[in-house]
Each structure stands twice: as C-alpha cells, then as structure tokens.
Nucleic acid binder design. Structure first.
Length: 271
DNA sequence: ATGCGGACCTGTTAGC
DNA sequence: TGCTAACAGGTCCGCA
C-alpha cells in the first residue's frame, strides 16, 4: 500500500501525539509479520521514551534512549493514533500504549510489514545500510541517478523500484514519474541520457512532493493516522488506467508486467 | 555483481 | 448468484 508519500503522511499524523511520549506498554496480538516480532520487546520497551520519530525511505524509526523501533508498513499496513480502550479490529496486530492516553496501533491484513527493534547505530542496520539517498534531499540528484543508470541494463522502471538505486518510489509513482518524463518503462537504464536523468530526477521530486501535499494516494484503504484518505489518486495520469486515453495524446494506455509488477504507459508519448 | 523469480499473506474484484 | 483465479500500494532472498 504505502509508498513514500503515504509513509510521510503517516509520520506527520502520528508525530504530534506520539513524539516525546513514554511507552507504557507494548501489546503484541500477532507476532507473525514479515519477521517475527520478538515477544521480549514487551519488557524491553516498557518505560522507554520516544525521543524522536523519523522516516528513512519507507521505514519509520522511533528513537528511544536504548535503541530504535523500525516499522515498515509493507503492502497493507496502517498506523493510527487512537485513544486507550479503542475496540480492537481484525488485523490489529500491535499496540504501542503511551502514557498520554493514546496508543499507536499497527494494522496490517497481509502482514508484509515489520516491527523490529535494534540497539545498533540505526544507519548500520542491515535493512537501512544499503539504501539509496533520500529522494527529497540534494544527495539524490541528476549526477547520482545518471551514474546509477549507466552501469545497468535492466528496465528503467525496475531500477526506479529497487531500493539500492532509488527509495520511496513504488509501483504507482514509478509509473507516474516515467509518464511525466516521457520515458518508456521498458527502456534499459543505460539508454537513458544525461538530460533525461535530470528530468527524471526533477519529476521524482516533484511528484513525491505533490503527493505528500495531497496526503498520499488512497486506492482502496489507505488512511492517514487521523483516518482521512489521500487525494493524490485524482491526479494519477497512467496508473491503473489500462485502455483509457493518455492525458497528452489520447492514445490508449497499455498495461504490461515487469518484474511481476504492473506497468502502465502511453506507447506514443513514452519512448 | 547482476537480474530474475519465488516467497511471504489476506482481501477484493474480474471472469466464467 | 456463486465459485475460482487473478491481482493488489513491498522487498528480501536464493539461484543461475
């Protein structure tokens, strides 16, 4: 479900109620996420203070005085801030109960997400130490992207979705960014020109930024922590638009499968 | 090192 | 209407 804008929306939603709060209790109803949630975390976390909450790629990092909680929402995860005593629903796997009367509740039907603890320096964690630069910082720029593309023959769409090259861009935004840049998803990465990587880089930043401003993209069930949906879906040009007219030229959008993921593009505008 | 396919899950929708 | 198959926003891992 969530790409970077949805995770950023989640961060902004939980921050005001969860940051600087003391953890009263951790409740694990179902520990079987992507990796098992360690049951001894209930002891480790009790009494710790959430000193800061940040995002790295699509990971949410809750910093405490003894280490970090690493949360990923996978395909279908949702984090919400709720009052103590709020009734539990299906797939409400974890509660982080806070001392201010609220709790952070993790719901994830498909259980592709994770809830991990580490006391190692966070940047060195195995899941984080090989990630591309944050796309909305200056470290992610045209020169960086060009060098990454130069040495690779895989389709550009696939490169945009691998976390060692680009983070935060999932299937929806990979399709949208390539449309905005008039590049076919099947073009080999090493056939992208320097000028095109510049435009690609600009469009990644532009589209992610705009999506964040709209509160993310709600396709089926994404809700921000306050329960509101995202509105970026209204601005999608090609994603899930098979057989619909291209907004530029009217040609029918086609759907193909790349790396087992659906790609949508205009065969006329995108070469 | 690269690139591909499988794996992990449940819920919803498309198609017969 | 009902059953079945396909598909869904992610990404790690193992293999060639």
């Amino acid at each position: 479900m969530p790409e970077l804008p949805e995770v950023e929306t989640t961060l902004r939603g939980i921050f005001p109620k969860a940051n600087k709060q003391t953890i009263k209790q951790l409740i694990i109803r179902n520990s079987s996420l992507r990796w098992p949630v360690e049951t001894n975390l209930t002891k480790v976390l009790a009494g710790l203070v959430i000193q800061n909450i940040t995002r790295r790629a699509k990971y949410l990092l809750l910093q405490t005085e003894k280490g970090h909680i690493i949360i990923h929402l996978g395909m279908s995860g949702v984090l919400r801030i709720l009052a103590h005593g709020t009734a539990v629903k299906k797939h409400d796997h974890i509660d982080l109960v806070l001392e201010n009367g609220y709790l952070l509740r993790y719901n994830d039907p498909r259980r592709f997400g994770c809830f991990l603890w580490t006391d190692q320096p966070i940047a060195e964690h195995k899941l984080l130490n090989n990630l591309a630069p944050e796309p909305l910082t200056d470290d992610f720029n045209a020169d960086y992207l060009f060098i990454k593309c130069q040495s690779r023959k895989l389709p550009i769409k696939t490169l945009l979705m691998e976390n060692k090259s680009v983070v935060g861009v999932g299937n929806i935004y990979a399709n949208e960014v390539l449309f905005a840049t008039s590049i076919s998803p099947i073009r080999p990465a090493n056939k992208i020109s320097q000028q095109e990587t510049k435009l690609l880089c600009q469009n990644i930043k532009k589209i992610l930024t705009r999506a964040i401003e709209q509160g993310g993209t709600t396709l089926k069930d994404f809700l921000s922590p306050d329960g509101s949906p995202g509105y970026f879906v209204q601005q999608l040009a090609v994603y899930d638009k098979k057989n619909q007219p291209c907004p530029n030229c009217g040609t029918q959008i086609i759907k193909i499968i790349q790396a087992q993921r659906a790609s949508f593009y205009c065969p006329d505008c995108q070469q």
